[in-house]
Design a protein around this nucleic acid. Structure first.
Lengths: 224, 224
DNA sequence: ATGTAAAGTGAGTAATCACTCACAATTTGA
DNA sequence: TCAAATTGTGAGTGATTACTCACTTTACAT
């Protein structure tokens, strides 16, 4: 019940954007709940209103349409997730560091983003579900991930390849290989089996280990 | 237009289950289309009927509810995907084969399942989307994947660990690491960017390479 | 205290929804 | 050939939907 306030702060960081009225926060909180539970299309504005202890008209006072409400929820989440990747240090850190420390660096980044997702697990579900159907969300995804995060990865990969520490797969393939096990863990951890007794630290370490070894050259057969 | 017949055969293999009337096939074909396009909840039975050139009542003659129609589509797809894993040979093949050939064996299996998914790409989308919301589909998933496929993997992993060829992560973690890059590829290949000029053979080879090396012991740090 | 703008309300609305049913057309079996 | 069973039809139905709007309440500056 308490960590929702932090989540809402993430949704609408107090630094930017106008501050929200209490009812507005209740609406956002209820909408995240309902959207995550039933999916956007199966959620009714009347249920969101009643769960937020608010009249249905109040929702439409602040959000012109139901889809506007969805976007108001998802957009800040995506931007919030991407924030660390905007740091100029990101790429520099990756290729300045000696290869044997790279694993630790990746771990730090991933653990940080893991905590962010952990605090916003329902948002992860909403994004993964609705990205497929709403072009507005796709555009936002394109803006944040493909235009900001992916190029950072590509630059880092470029330097790793130069050092010869890494297999020579195409960049999109390598990025997919880096992200797939991470997303696979996040989805299992928060969506499929959130109630299992997870040792997050261990799982993340093993996931990073898996990625690094999977991308490393050689391992026994030193053919090419 | 033509490969739909094969797909429908996969949906309702002629060996079992009663044969379908032409209208019934049109309904299934249209339903797959519409469900994949707009998602189950946003699809209307009236649109499915009109796209199938069928009266709306005809749908409900064969499927009591809209959800019954969804299940009639998804269930055979899941069963069809699992078929090769039911083969008794599966595990035996994996641990009888010398480790250096294991990669080839995995490739063969994965390429085979890849072709199956390729012929039923819209079904993949429907399953991934709707699994989250319909307990009937979760049950079917449980039945097929968790009770049939996962144990086969566990047995194979047990023998691989015995041979000492593989890191000692928990079985669920290892299964996740095997499946994540494959699912990541399938999702990218068929849902996110199906129109890219894919070299499927190469991508699959690299994905298997990535998995095998990621799970292999050692590579530099032979600490534990 | 008072005027004004913003926030909140909930009954009302037209559209759409999944589903029904009385009936028509077609297929089947003997 | 003909009756019975199966398959197909589409107008009709009650429920639910996102959204509106005339109105009330609250917040705030002077």
């Amino acid at each position: 019940m308490k960590e929702f306030e932090e989540m809402l702060h993430t949704l609408h960081p107090p630094s930017e954007e106008k501050k929200l009225t209490p009812k507005q926060e209740q609406i956002l909180k209820a909408a995240v709940e309902v959207f995550a539970e039933k999916g956007y299309a199966s959620s009714s504005t009347s249920e969101i209103a009643s769960r937020a202890n608010v009249a249905e008209g109040t929702i439409f006072r602040h959000y012109k349409t139901k889809k506007d409400l969805l976007i108001a929820i998802v957009k800040p989440f995506m931007r919030g997730f991407a924030v660390p990747f905007f740091a100029a240090r990101f790429v520099q850190d990756v290729f300045d560091v000696p290869p044997e420390k790279l694993e630790d660096l990746l771990k730090t980044l991933i653990k940080n983003r893991f905590e962010f997702v952990k605090e916003n697990a329902p948002l992860l579900k909403i994004v993964l579900q609705e990205l497929a159907f709403h072009s507005e969300l796709k555009d936002q995804f394109q803006e944040v991930f493909i235009q900001e995060i992916f190029p950072k990865f590509e630059e880092a990969i470029y330097h790793l390849k130069e050092k010869g520490a890494v297999v020579d797969f195409p960049n999109p393939t390598m990025i997919r290989m880096i992200m797939s096990p991470i997303i696979g863990f996040l989805v299992t951890r928060f969506l499929i089996a959130p109630d299992l007794p997870w040792d997050d630290e261990k799982e993340l370490d093993q996931t990073v280990h898996f990625i690094m070894h999977g991308l490393s050259k050689g391992t026994g057969s030193s053919s090419d």
